[in-house]
Every structure is written in C-alpha cells, then in structure tokens.
C-alpha cells in the first residue's frame, strides 16, 4: 500500500485510479495509503454539479473543464453513475461526454458507481477527492448521479455546489422548495433552447430573492441564478460556461474572504471522520457477524420476537467494545 501511495504522490495516474479502486472495493489496509496522503490534501477547490437525471450535468462538466483549462487550472473529475440494484453492475455513462479531454494530461477523469450508496454519490467519493487533490488538480469537479431531493450528500464534500435545473420537468420549483434550495450555492438554468427556460429562470430568481439567506452556511452570499446558453449554440455555450466558471470561483473566493471556508471544511471533515469511524468500528463487526452466520441467528431472534433490535445492538456492542 505504501508503494501505491508513493506512486500516487509522484503523479502516477494508473496508481491513483487503482487507489480509488481500492477504496471503492474496500480492500483491507487501503487506509495505510490514505494515511500517507491525508496530510498533503486540502489544496483543491471542490465543485459539486448536481441535478435531475439528464439535466445536462456531464455536458456542462465537459465544457467547464475547457473553461478551467483555458484559465490554466488543472482539473480532476469524479463522475458518479448508479449501480444496478439487480446485478451490482453499472453503466458508467458520464465519461462519454468528456472524451475529448482524454489525452489532456492536465485533466483526470474517473468514473465511479454508487455501489448502493443512496446519497447521490458513492462512499469512496470523499477519499477519491483526496487522491485527486494530491495529484495537484486545482479544481475537482464531482458530478453526482441524477438526483432527487434526498440525494444531497454532495454538500459534505464540495466547497461549491451548483444545481442544474432544466425547463420542462414540471415540478422543478416544488423540488427546489423541498430540498435543493438547501444545498445550492449556484443555480444553473440549462437547455436554454427549450420552451420555458426564461420562465424557469424568472421563477428561480424570484425564489432565491425571497429566501432570506443562503442556508448552505455561507452567510451573505446571494445565490446567483445563471442561464447557460444551449449546447446547440457552441460558441455562446462556451462563453456562458466561462461565466459559470467565474461565478463558481467567485463563490470560493467569497468563502475564503469571509472566513467561511473553514466552516465548510469542518463539515466535510466531520463527515469523513464519521466515515472512518464507520469503516474502522462498525464494518469489521458487521463482517464478523456475517462471516460466522451470527447475523442470521440475530435476525431469527427478531423474527420470533424473542428479542428486539435495540437489545441486540446493545449486546453486540458490549461484546465487541470492551
């Protein structure tokens, strides 16, 4: 594992991708490599792109990569797609829209499957961000799976969250009220060629103006609403994505200037600690219980009402945590 982290720190792409894979596959001892790496992280600006399935997240990410490259940034992309609940397999389809960057050594794109995680990203995303970070990518873009209102784990990992909305989805505004408002630092109105884009823009703007404050922990930041030109107008599209890039960077600068970044980092780090605790404490126990079939015996007790989940959990805890 040390060998691997050494290579990653030297900038070896394959090794980095393998390390991310070890994290995804939960290979034992991967934490040793991460221990080496953790101290060197924290330099990159992490941008989350989220929104409904098919909203144009990947298409935007693709163009955003161009915009950042133009400015001299290096870019890492973590693109998350859903795992099939039936087979455990996945079609990782985001990457296909970003293929033109394949040979650009300043860009590293890695596709991840959710592997059953429900929050719109995969469990490995947080650590994968660290890996991208030590590869010295200055911008790390995380594209979530097409999410509904519940899948908002991205806020635990990104400094800036951009929420993509498109006209014609019917109940956008409802959704906004319900959840996305809470996580957005920037709203993007996409697919400007579609009927209703102007209307959606106005509605979103109204809503943003009505809400008192950014709930996402950035006091005083007025959530901007950006209308991105249609991808069908390539030149204008590129220009408006450059404007988006500048807005994203402005938000990051705002966090820094107003000492808000640390707050986000705290949240992010807390989430990571949670994950690590889960991984180190709970996971081995669960593995143990599964390995010797104990889990089935416990479940049997519940089915026959011989015990209840709370008592059993307490029993297990007292056995393992002496």
């Amino acid at each position: 594992m040390k060998e691997l982290s050494k290579k990653v720190l030297e900038g070896d792409i394959r090794a980095a991708s393998r390390l991310i894979r070890n994290l995804e596959d939960q290979i034992p001892n991967t934490y040793i490599a991460m221990q080496e790496i953790f101290g060197k992280t924290g330099n990159a600006h992490v941008v989350g792109i989220t929104g409904a399935p098919g909203a144009g997240k990947s298409t935007l990410t693709d163009e955003l990569i161009c915009a950042y490259r133009k400015k001299g940034d290096t870019v890492g992309v973590l693109a998350v797609d859903p795992t099939s609940p039936f087979s455990g397999g996945a079609l990782l389809g985001d990457r296909i829209r970003m293929l033109r960057h394949a040979e650009d050594t300043g860009v590293f794109i890695r596709s991840l499957a959710t592997r059953g995680a429900m929050g719109g990203i995969s469990k490995a995303v947080g650590e994968a961000i660290h890996v991208m970070d030590v590869l010295k990518k200055s911008k790390i873009i995380v594209e979530t799976v097409g999410v509904g209102q519940q899948e908002v784990d991205i806020i635990n990992h990104a400094h800036t969250v951009a929420v993509v909305l498109v006209p014609g989805m019917g109940d956008e505004i409802q959704a906004l009220k319900a959840g996305l408002m809470e996580i957005a630092d920037i709203f993007i109105i996409n697919k400007a060629d579609r009927d209703g884009a102007g209307k959606l823009y106005k509605e979103t703007l109204n809503m943003v103006n009505m809400s008192k404050d950014n709930k996402n922990g950035a006091q005083g930041w007025r959530i901007p609403v950006l209308l991105v030109e249609s991808v069908l107008e390539p030149i204008k599209f590129a220009e408006s994505v450059e404007a988006l890039r500048d807005k994203i960077d402005e938000h990051y600068q705002y966090l820094i200037d107003n000492d808000l970044l640390s707050e986000r980092m705290r949240r992010k780090t807390t989430a990571e600690l949670n994950e690590a605790l889960w991984g180190t404490i709970l996971q081995p126990i669960l593995k143990d219980l599964h390995a010797d079939g104990e889990i089935n015996r416990l479940v049997d007790k519940l089915l026959t009402k011989a015990s209840d989940p709370y008592s059993l959990a307490a029993e297990v805890a007292s056995k393992y945590m002496k």
Binding site: T83, S84, F86, S87, G88, G89, A90, L91, L92, G93, R95, I96, L99, A102, E103, S111, A113
Partner: peptide
C-alpha cells in the same frame, strides 16, 4: 456486462487508439 455485475464504461463510436 452490466447485468453480469461488471462496471462498464462505453466510449461510443469513433475513438482513436490514443483516447
């Protein structure tokens, strides 16, 4: 392949060997 439990990345048509 997805149904066989693999994680699949498909590039679509017209890719160069370098890509």
């Amino acid at each position: 392949f997805r149904d066989a439990g693999f994680e699949v990345i498909y590039t679509g048509c017209h890719q160069t060997p370098e890509m």
